[in-house]
Structures are given as C-alpha cells and as structure tokens.
Nucleic acid binder design. Structure first.
Lengths: 253, 253
DNA sequence: CTTGACCTTTACGCAACGTAAAGGTCTATC
DNA sequence: GATAGACCTTTACGTTGCGTAAAGGTCAAG
C-alpha cells in the first residue's frame, strides 16, 4: 500500500506539515517521489513512522529519535535510560511547582501573608492526610505501621534548608527568651519580639494558624512538664514567661 | 538604590538579555532612562521583578504574568487555579510517559533469551556495530540508506525473515480482530486466539514478556488515540475490544 | 587620551511545527 | 475538453523566551 502525505498523515494522526518537516530534517524520507514531485510513502515508511511516534510520545527529541533509529552503534536502551532519568527529574521539578502553586492559592484565599516555607509545610501535611485517607489502611495492613510512618516522616520531612532555618530560629528563641526574661515584663518589646518569633517558628510546622491554638500551646508549655522542662532549662520560669508574653501578644491578657 | 541592567541582572540571577526582553515586551520597564540611554531600575522595579520571577518559577507564561500583575480586574487566584489544573494534567501525562518508558526499558533488557534467531543476530550485530562505527557514513554514501536500514533491523534483533513474519502477523491480527469483533464477546474463542496472536506478535520485539506490560499496552491502545485510530480503522471499537480480549486472556478480567 | 568595562540596538538562532500564500496536478463533472 | 475543487508542491514568517554575536556609543581609571 502506498500513501501520499496527507493520506499517511490522516492514518497516523499527525499533520501533513509534520511529515514534510520530517522529510526536511531527514528523519523520515518518503519511499519515492512520483513524476509530479509528490511524496509517496510505502509500508516501510509507515512502520518507521510508528516507531518515531512511539519515541516522540515518550518526549524524546527528534534529534535523539534520529540517533536511535539511524545509528546502529547507538544503544537505544541506554538512550532510553538517560531519557528516563531526565523525565524523573522533570517530574520532581513539576511536583515542587505544583506544591507551591497549591499553597499559594490557599494562602491567597485565606488572605494571609504566608511564609514561603510555611507554604511548603502546609502542602506536605495535606499530602500526608490525603495519602493516609486513600491508602493508609491498605498499606498499613500490607506493610505494617513502620512503612506508613516512615513515608509520613519523609513527606513531612522538610527540605534541608527549611529544617536548618527552623532549628536556627528555635535557638534564637531560646536566646531571646533569656534576654527578655531579665526585663521581667511580658509586655516589653523584647518579650513581644519573642512572642512574634515564636509564632514564626510555629509556622514552619503548622499549616493553619489560629490564635486559640497558639494560646493553647502556650498554656501547655506551663501545664506539661516536658515542655516546661525544655524552656526552664535555659531560664528558670522561662516557660511561664513565654506563655505570658504570647498571651499579651495575642491580646489575651 | 538604583541599578543598571546588569547590576539588577546579577542581583536577581537573571541575564541582562532577559531584562531587556522584559522591557521590550512591556513586562518590566525600567524606572527611568538616563541621558545616555541606559536603563535605570529603582526599588519598585526590583520588587516587581521578584514577583515576576516568582510566577515564572511556577511555569506561568510571561503573557499570563503580565495579566496577573498589570490588570487590577484580573483575578490572580483564578488565574493560578487554571494554571494549577494545567500543571496537574501535565503531571498526569508525565506519569503515563514515565510508566511507559519503564516498561519499555524492562522489556528491552531482560537478556537475549527470546528468539534463537535474535541470538544469532546478536553476533552479527556486534560486527555491524564495529563496521558502522568505522565505516558507517561511507557505507551509507556508497550503498545507500537501504543497506544501512536493513542492518538496523538486525540491530533491533530481527532478521529480514523475522521482520517479514512480524509484519505478516500484524496483518493477520487486524483480520482476526475484525472476525472476532463480530462475536461481540472478548471471551470467545476467536477473541482469545486474537489475544494469543497479539502476544506472539509482541514477542518479536519484546525480549522479556510480562503480563503487566501486556496489559499496560492493551490499556494504551484505548488511552492513546494514535493506537486507537490504528485499530479502530479496521473496526470501530476495535481497540477497546482488543484490550478486553487481552485482559480476559491474561486472566485480568 | 587610551583602554577596558559597561551600555545600546539589531538581528539571527533554537524546537517542532502551524499557517498562509502562490502556484502546479489530479479527478470528476458538465 | 474545459473547468471546478481537491490535493500536492515550495517558500517563508510566526510561535516562546531568551542566547549569542555584531557594531557601535559611554564611562571611569590610569
């Protein structure tokens, strides 16, 4: 069976222009040219075109496709593996972008000015939730809690940079707590700066901020001895002072 | 603080050309032009550039960025949501592609245990490889593409005979599809013969057979319009019928 | 006053085609 | 056998977001 450009085009789902272009760059030349200069494609070309379209579907560039099908010394498997790695990188980038867009939208809707890093954290939490909702039980049954928890940790795992920034901020807070504590006044500028920084610190791991939650946490610092111990380690009475500063900051005291 | 193009470029991590381009298309114009015609950017422009770069990172086109930042009536949240949907589609496509590449690679690998003829071809192949590397272009010039293409087919693991047999089998499959389709039953003997022949046909090009890969390909026949067109050309609904027959054949339906 | 680092505009190049435009060819019908 | 309409040809500009010369003006320092 022989075909003219547009016949072949219609058959294969590409445009005539595409076939002419492939001819032009030497990727797929017609089997012969008839007396009127028409391109005539035969069975061989049809098959080759299918191969070409297969690779094109895989987002291989025409240049690389040319190499794959024209040069016997070229290793198609290796080429595909390279390409595979590129695709994975591309998807990783895309995932990151999608996450950012999503959090950007939700922060736009919430009308809050969000920390870039906070946006990331928020998305991860939601991811974990969705993941758990959809596959949690199944995976838990199949692979055990260990696996699920590990994956959650991973999802939750912030970027190295975020983690470092958060840790650093946590240290700053302790230093600031010591300085503010000597003022003895939860309303002092230092104490209020402390409270603000504490909120900022929280935002690394919280997806949604509510005054009540912040206040509740502050109370917990005093009520729960584990927290108390953590802040009192730096300054005796530190937990209590921090709570008071936060309550003032929130306009609750 | 004021900056010339390249100062701002260095500060923001883009190229000077990029800034000139943004000026050209009206996306970001310098605050003023000095007496020598130099572009001078102020703080306002720096901030705007940062906004622009933020959106650019999210793969928003410059045209859309322009809309977002220039038109007060334009709803950025809606715009981002549209964009978000596009991104998700893009990722879905990418996932499909990656999956296909994976199965293709694994089917390409898997050793050369398949066809005896292919093993033989393996020897010749190495010969051809060395030959091509040294004399490839010369041969192409002297004997034409025909010769080289013939050897390519060998590289792909097929002898001329295999190639013809495969083509013939491919045609048989189309005929059989038509016949089987009229039974209307993917479980019918004819349909199952069809599926078996399809597997046989696959084995010409696959080095390793896996049910999952076969099933995946069957799904692709329906999902990918090019394949669908190919099989539907013979019988309307042919691709779908073939897929069902294969799934039954594989015990997956 | 020259040198070299900066700035300017103009313009071609990239990937993979889409889309005219201007013109030749085939086929069917009057 | 003329003519319309469908199909083919080549040429060439447009698309996106710049990179990369090329040809030339400007500025600060030695």
């Amino acid at each position: 069976m022989e075909y003219t450009v547009n016949k072949l085009a219609q058959m294969s789902g590409v445009s005539g222009r595409t076939l002419r272009y492939y001819d032009q760059i030497g990727l797929l030349k017609p089997g012969r040219i008839n007396s009127s200069g028409y391109r005539i494609y035969g069975q061989k070309e049809v098959d080759l075109l299918q191969q070409i379209l297969f690779y094109r579907e895989l987002e291989v560039s025409l240049e690389d496709i040319m190499k794959i099908i024209n040069q016997p010394s070229f290793n198609p498997t290796l080429a595909l593996k390279d390409h595979y790695n590129e695709l994975k990188k591309k998807r990783a980038r895309l995932d990151k972008i999608i996450a950012t867009v999503e959090t950007t939208i939700s922060s736009m809707e919430g009308g809050r000015t969000m920390h870039d890093k906070e946006k990331f954290a928020g998305f991860k939490e939601r991811l974990i939730d969705e993941n758990e909702q959809n596959y949690g039980n199944e995976i838990r049954e199949k692979y055990g809690d260990e696996t699920v928890d590990a994956s959650n940790r991973k999802l939750r795992g912030m970027s190295q940079g975020d983690y470092e920034a958060m840790t650093k901020l946590g240290e700053e807070i302790l230093v600031l707590l010591k300085k503010a504590y000597v003022t003895g006044d939860p309303k002092s500028d230092l104490a209020q700066e402390l409270a603000a920084k504490h909120k900022e610190w929280l935002m690394y791991s919280w997806t949604k901020y509510a005054k009540e939650a912040h206040a509740g946490l502050a109370e917990m610092y005093v009520a729960d001895e584990r927290f108390t111990a953590y802040y009192d380690k730096k300054v005796k009475g530190g937990a209590e002072f921090l709570r008071d500063a936060i309550l003032v900051y929130l306009g609750m005291k």
